[in-house]
């Protein structure tokens, strides 16, 4: 159990700014919240009376619902705002949206936005806590955290673990958050995908480049398979989805050549038959559904840690609990 001294700041913008200790704190805090989701009354009053706004500029059902469950299970009041598009095209600027929310005295904002840096932009301008639910191609910290929790659950550790992230690394905020989180906690990260979808300087992030999926399967303890987006084909990065599946798809046939049983992960939603075959997704080594369960627990942990306890009052933490 880590000690509760590695307090988080006001916002969770990404995993890059966090220390290993802070990340461990979140993962450890998620454990008791897993238990809350197994009770028949799935609610604790920890965030009672807090107002949380889910501000989603990009459509996302699963992440939003996961956050909503996390918020409600902590007894917070939640409001969903499906804002449209970017400041430029649609009327109200992000700054004005933020200030309006602040004027309504909300406590926390969970935001997903299409521009990298948007979460930090918001966090710098409002006093409420800001949680990044995905900003452009930059980071998706709660996804990175739930991926790490799932790996830790299965392997009992993260240090020395070899995790291969497979797919469109160039455009993936999930990949970036995973790279930051895993490397900070001592895991080895590999990236695998077509060169058109791989950042040129990715090695400088401390990762191993695995040119073919076969190399990744030989090397890794776990595969984190990213969703391939149709737009990439249209933008000329790939010839076809069929070719992607033939060359990079994770199939049971390919997995059978692995030296050990690989853990199969996917952030969802899956393109069955493109980046991952159905029998792999539904197979015995897939932890795709546990990832979803862990997602709610991790998000509860993040909300809980950000919501209360100012550092100033940490000084009085020396005294014994009031019995």
């Amino acid at each position: 159990m880590t000690t509760a001294t590695a307090a988080l700041g006001k916002d969770l913008v990404g995993l890059e700014p966090l220390s290993a200790e802070q990340i461990r704190l979140i993962l450890d805090t998620a454990e008791p919240f897993k238990e809350v989701s197994e009770r028949s009354i799935k609610k604790v009053p920890a965030l009672r009376g807090k107002t949380i706004v889910n501000l989603f500029f990009e459509a996302s059902t699963r992440t939003r619902i996961s956050f909503e469950f996390a918020e409600k299970r902590l007894s917070a009041d939640t409001v969903n705002v499906a804002a449209s598009g970017s400041s430029v095209s649609k009327g109200e600027t992000l700054v004005d949206t933020a200030r309006n929310l602040e004027a309504m005295r909300i406590d926390m904002v969970v935001m997903r936005h299409g521009s990298s840096g948007a979460a930090r932009f918001l966090g710098e301008r409002i006093a409420s806590n800001v949680i990044n639910a995905g900003d452009g191609k930059h980071e998706h910290p709660t996804q990175g955290l739930l991926d790490m929790l799932t790996l830790r659950d299965h392997f009992g550790r993260l240090e020395g673990l070899k995790v291969a992230i497979c797919g469109d690394v160039l455009h993936s905020r999930v990949a970036r958050s995973n790279i930051w989180g895993l490397t900070k906690l001592g895991a080895e990260v590999g990236v695998c995908g077509p060169m058109t979808l791989m950042p040129r300087d990715v090695r400088e992030l401390g990762v191993t480049v695995l040119p073919r999926i076969e190399d990744a399967i030989q090397w890794a303890d776990a595969l984190n398979i990213l969703r391939l987006q149709l737009e990439r084909m249209q933008a000329g990065f790939l010839p076809s989805l069929r070719e992607y599946n033939r060359v990079f798809g994770v199939s049971n046939d390919r997995l059978s050549k692995a030296p050990k049983d690989l853990l199969i992960m996917h952030p969802g939603p899956m393109n069955r038959g493109v980046e991952i075959d159905s029998d792999v997704a539904d197979g015995p080594h897939s932890v795709i559904l546990p990832q979803v369960t862990n997602g709610v627990a991790v998000r509860m942990a993040v909300l809980y840690l950000l919501a209360g306890g100012t550092p100033a009052l940490a000084q009085s933490a020396g005294r014994a609990e009031d019995k």
């Binding site: 990298s116 452009g136 905020r173 950042p199 400088e204």
Partner: peptide
């Protein structure tokens, strides 16, 4: 600029 900073910041 396309480089390590753009990769880290997730900008094209």
């Amino acid at each position: 600029h396309e480089g390590i900073v753009s990769t880290r910041l997730g900008l094209k």
